[in-house]
Nucleic acid binder design. Structure first.
Lengths: 210, 210
DNA sequence: CAATGTGAAGCCCTTCACAGCG
DNA sequence: CGCTGTGAAGGGCTTCACATTG
């Protein structure tokens, strides 16, 4: 029987960082990289790097290190970045606009295939070549365009309702920027980016007696 | 001799969430709240809540729970939110603009006292009643306005240089949105918000064999 | 009797340390 | 001899469980 070791949640986050390092490395013609060199670049340590990679297979060679190209390919596959992901943005405010304009998302395979709002003044307006659509059509359109990832940038009050609609429409993963704890089914993945909490954390640090 | 228990880093993050719950509670006239009720609101558990609060003192009463107003005040103080924090925004792009417009920051005590960019086309332009200033004046202005918190929304390539300038100007805490691991002195606090990593995490979840 | 505060246990992630491979 | 992969140790956060309090 195959024993599956539980993989820490954080591990995927670090894989993203490793991948980014490997990508910026491409310019210099390094053939291989050691766990130590990789660790240095992201303020981690070699044991952590080796452990993280070992969860997914044996990518290195003792005495040599990791082949950069091979490792890049492996992590890309592990993270599911060898395909493009259709996303939907709900909430056409300032933050939504900034995210929509963020070119890196597109480069990394995330494509915003629909933008929704419920404000009549916004519906119909175009952002680049994409029109803001009416939130009441969310379900139909999300299904039609086979969208799998939802990004919520609406005010806190509306966020749970939006999440419910996204889930009902078949979205399985949500990135929530609204400052409220959302409830989603076990089967779905939810990540929160809470800007106030981030700033408050800095304030806490600065206030701590030291 | 006083024994100081080490307080988990994450704890402050949860305190922020507790505080937010308590604030939204104000409307109903609840006098007290139990650790269980508080936990339910943020998808945590009562033991965690009690432990978190106990790090900082005894705020509850056995058999009764926590007095809402008293607890609100206590957490506000612990997090250092009983004063206003002068902040600086470096990078007047889309994301910077969205953050600047985010009214909640101001409400919670974070005031953006300066906006910098190095693009001649942006310098001098006004966002609301504040002008974008030349990044080369950063040091002088940050010191003058006694700014303690820096928010970095420049492209990755420029981010480390900006961080260095902020630190040199006396900033002690940085919120970094650039997709690069920054290096700052031990004495300073750095938090990263990495939007690509967040999305990649969702992709990883969706790709996992299950 | 309800609910806190807290030792102690449990659990999970990180780090050590080394066998083994190239 | 350098460096990976990994069993085992370590460490820190979470959860249990209960004495204690109002």
């Amino acid at each position: 029987m195959m024993v599956v070791k539980r993989i820490p949640e954080i591990c995927a986050t670090r894989l993203s960082s490793y991948l980014r390092v490997l990508k910026t490395l491409g310019e210099r013609k390094l053939e291989t990289i050691s766990s130590e060199a990789l660790a240095d670049r992201i303020n981690s340590n070699p044991a952590q790097v080796r452990r993280d990679l070992a969860y997914f297979g044996q990518f290195g060679r003792p005495g040599i290190g990791y082949n950069v190209e091979k490792l890049k390919g492996a992590i890309t596959k592990i993270l599911g970045l060898d395909k493009r992901w259709p996303c939907v943005l709900v909430g056409a405010g300032n933050l939504g606009s900034a995210l929509y304009a963020y070119r890196n998302f597109y480069k990394e395979g995330f494509e915003i295939k629909a933008i929704f709002d419920n404000d009549p003044n916004k519906i119909g307006k175009a952002w680049g070549c994409r029109k803001i659509e009416d939130a009441k059509d969310l379900s139909t359109i999300v299904k039609q365009r086979k969208i799998e990832i939802g990004i919520i940038t609406v005010p806190a009050e509306a966020s749970q309702e939006v999440a419910d609609k996204l889930i009902a429409a078949g979205v399985k993963a949500i990135l929530n920027f609204a400052p409220r704890k959302l409830t989603v089914p076990q089967s779905a993945k939810l990540r929160n980016v809470d800007l106030s909490v981030e700033l408050e954390n800095l304030a806490y640090f600065l206030s701590k007696p030291r």
